[in-house]
Every structure is written in C-alpha cells, then in structure tokens.
Design a protein around this nucleic acid. Structure first.
Lengths: 140, 140
DNA sequence: CTACCGGTTAGAGCGCACTCTAAGTCAAGA
DNA sequence: TCTTGACTTAGAGTGCGCTCTAACCGGTAG
C-alpha cells in the first residue's frame, strides 16, 4: 500500500503520515525499488490506536514515549501498561469534568428557554407554591 | 479588586486576563485614578463560565461570538441559546467518543495484565533455570 | 528620598500539531 | 516521446492560545 492509499484508509493526510514517521510515531516504512513507501495493512491498527490516544488528549510527546517502549520489546510491557493506566485516569477525570460542565450548560440553556415564560408562568407558579430556596438566580 | 487579585481568584494569569480583555472576551475593566484596572467581583462569574466553555473545548472564536451576543442585550437570547445547544451536542458527542476510547484502553490494559500473567507462567515453566532475560537485540 | 512592588503598554515569542511549498524523481498511459 | 500524477525531500508557514519582554509609571514602607 502506498502512502496515498494509507492516507485514504487511515484518515490522516500523506503529509501527516510522513510527519509522524519523521518524529518517530510511525516506524520507518519499507520502500519499493523506486524509493516510495510501501505499507503493510497492519500499520492501520497502530494508526487507529494512535488516533484513540490523540482523541483522548494524549500529547504527541507521550505517544512517542509509548511508541518507543513498544519498539523496545517485551521487557517494556509493565511500563506501557503503567503509561496507559495513568492516561486512562486522566481521561476518566476529564470525562467527569465534562459531565459537570454539561450540567452547567443544561442549566444555562434551561434558563434561556424559560426566559420568555419566566415573566408570566414561572414567577406566578413560584409565588403560588411553597417559598423554596432562591436558586436559578443568574441566566443573563 | 486589582488584576493580581483577580488573577489569584480566577486562576488565570494577569497576562491572560489582559489578553482576554484585548480580544474582547472580557469587558473593558474600569480604571482607578492611577489608570489601573479595578474589577467588580461579578466578573468572576463570567470568567468561571468562560472556563467551562474552554474546558469543554469551545474555541475562543466562538466564545467571542457568545460574548458579543451577551453584550448585545436581551434580543440575542435565542441566538445565545442556540449556540450553547449546539455546543452541548458537540460536548455530548465528544464524551461518548471518549467513553468508547476508554473501553479500548481498558481492553489494552487488560491485555498487558494478561501478558504479565502469561510471562509469570512461562517463567514458572523454566523455574529450574535462573530467570534470565532472553531478549533479542535490535529495534533501537 | 529611595527601594520595591505591582501595575501599564505594544508587541515579540513559544509550544503544539500539523500543513504546505518548492523542486525534483519515477512509472504508466495516450 | 510526452504528459500526468503520485510520490520524494528539507524546510518554511499556519493557527491557536497563550506567555513573556522591555520599558515605563504610581503608591507605599523604611
């Protein structure tokens, strides 16, 4: 498979594939007799995994570290596992943070949705019902 | 409140606060008679909200758009709501993506845990010999 | 008065992750 | 043979979001 084909299949640009090879994120590709890169389909699995790491916010530096360990053979498996576990915790924390932000967004959006009605219904229902806590202040 | 104090309270640097003001993300601050910025505590609410947008991956361009709408008064509420709803969907999609990646990470990590186990078993089968590392050379 | 601290500005610089350019090589089809 | 198009390289450029520098100003403690 030549680089254009790999680009199509992987979703990376040929430029990016060469860049990744240059920095060590992808192994040096084999060349055909005219000097062009010739890829085995198995590279796609690795690129896919890199994509996952990228999606989850791992910086390239750290992917490089992982790639280096991977190139270092079976003796590096504990370190690779530790690296991924650390990353997993960061991702989990980030997901939790995003979910907290989603709640805030929901509240904010609900505030906008209610802003038309609020003058009439919300204030009215508020005074009819029990005088609850004074929440829902903002929503500019 | 002067800029240093606001920096401490908001978690932004004074440089960043000035930068945000320059690009329009923060309103032009009032000045005291010696020309220094003097903030009202209410700015913290806005900065906090900006932080949520940033955390959830909204680019500054879009925050600027929201800030501009906000400055445009009550007539812009529908647009602000639409913007936040669109953003919320993107964040939800991103969370889903991250969770899918977490599953992949879990699998990968479990794989390493399993290989460690296999190695233990393998070593055990050669327990008569000294557990020497029989790795091959090369690959770096 | 002097030192020092924290503020002011315009604008330069940085780190990241690409993204593209220029100039050239190579193989196949009209 | 000529043209087309995909490939090659080193290296320059881009967009984002800060981050810092240089040179200066003003208020306060010793």
């Amino acid at each position: 498979m030549k680089i254009g084909e790999l680009a199509k299949r992987s979703g990376l640009s040929a430029h990016t594939i060469r860049y990744y090879e240059r920095i060590g994120l992808l192994p040096h590709a084999d060349r055909d007799r005219s000097g062009q890169r010739d890829y085995d389909a198995s590279i796609l699995t690795w690129i896919e995994f890199l994509d996952r790491l990228k999606t989850t916010g791992m910086p390239i530096r750290e992917m490089l570290h992982y790639a280096a360990l991977r190139g270092g053979g079976a003796g590096t498996e504990a370190a690779r596992k530790a690296l991924l576990e650390q990353h997993r915790e960061r991702v989990r924390a980030h997901v939790a943070e995003l979910q907290a932000c989603l709640l805030v967004l929901d509240t904010k959006i609900a505030g906008y949705a209610g802003s038309k009605q609020r003058m009439k219904e919300y204030d009215a229902s508020f005074s009819e019902r029990k005088p609850a806590r004074t929440r829902q202040a903002g929503a500019r």
